[in-house]
Simulated assay, not measured.
Amino acid sequence: MLVKTKYFGEIDLDADKIITFPQGIMGFEEYKRYTILYDAEEGKKANISWLQSLDEQALALPVVNPFLVKEDYNPIVEDEILKPLGEIDEQNLIILLSLTVPTDITKMSVNLKAPFLINSDTRKGSQVILENQNYEVKYYIYDKMKKLKEEKGEE
Score class of each variant (00 low, 15 high):
residue 86 G to M: 10
residue 88 I to E: 08
residue 88 I to L: 15
residue 89 D to Y: 07
residue 89 D to N: 15
residue 90 E to S: 13
residue 91 Q to E: 15
residue 91 Q to V: 08
residue 91 Q to D: 15
residue 92 N to R: 05
residue 92 N to K: 11
residue 92 N to Q: 04
residue 93 L to F: 03
residue 93 L to C: 14
residue 94 I to C: 09
residue 94 I to H: 13
residue 94 I to G: 03
residue 94 I to S: 08
residue 95 I to C: 10
residue 95 I to R: 07
residue 95 I to N: 06
residue 96 L to Y: 09
residue 97 L to Q: 11
residue 97 L to V: 11
residue 97 L to E: 11
residue 98 S to M: 09
residue 98 S to W: 00
residue 98 S to F: 14
residue 98 S to H: 00
residue 98 S to E: 06
residue 98 S to R: 04
residue 100 T to S: 13
residue 100 T to W: 07
residue 101 V to Y: 07
residue 101 V to D: 03
residue 102 P to S: 11
residue 102 P to H: 08
residue 102 P to N: 12
residue 102 P to K: 10
residue 103 T to Q: 14
residue 103 T to R: 05
residue 103 T to C: 04
residue 104 D to N: 15
residue 105 I to W: 09
residue 105 I to A: 10
residue 105 I to R: 13
residue 106 T to K: 12
residue 106 T to L: 00
residue 107 K to L: 14
residue 107 K to T: 12
residue 107 K to C: 01
residue 108 M to D: 03
residue 108 M to P: 07
residue 108 M to I: 08
residue 108 M to K: 07
residue 109 S to N: 15
residue 109 S to M: 07
residue 109 S to H: 14
residue 110 V to Y: 12
residue 111 N to R: 01
residue 111 N to Y: 15
residue 112 L to V: 08
residue 112 L to M: 15
residue 112 L to A: 07
residue 112 L to F: 08
residue 112 L to T: 06
residue 113 K to A: 02
residue 113 K to F: 08
residue 114 A to V: 00
residue 115 P to E: 05
residue 116 F to P: 10
residue 116 F to W: 12
residue 117 L to F: 12
residue 118 I to L: 10
residue 118 I to R: 10
residue 119 N to C: 04
residue 119 N to H: 03
residue 119 N to R: 04
residue 119 N to K: 10
residue 120 S to N: 03
residue 120 S to M: 02
residue 121 D to K: 11
residue 122 T to G: 11
residue 122 T to D: 00
residue 123 R to I: 02
residue 123 R to G: 03
residue 123 R to T: 01
residue 124 K to F: 03
residue 125 G to K: 14
residue 125 G to L: 11
residue 126 S to T: 14
residue 126 S to K: 15
residue 127 Q to Y: 02
residue 127 Q to T: 06
residue 127 Q to G: 10
residue 127 Q to L: 01
residue 127 Q to V: 00
residue 128 V to G: 04
residue 128 V to M: 02
residue 129 I to Q: 09
residue 129 I to T: 06
residue 130 L to P: 02
residue 130 L to N: 05
residue 131 E to M: 04
residue 132 N to M: 06
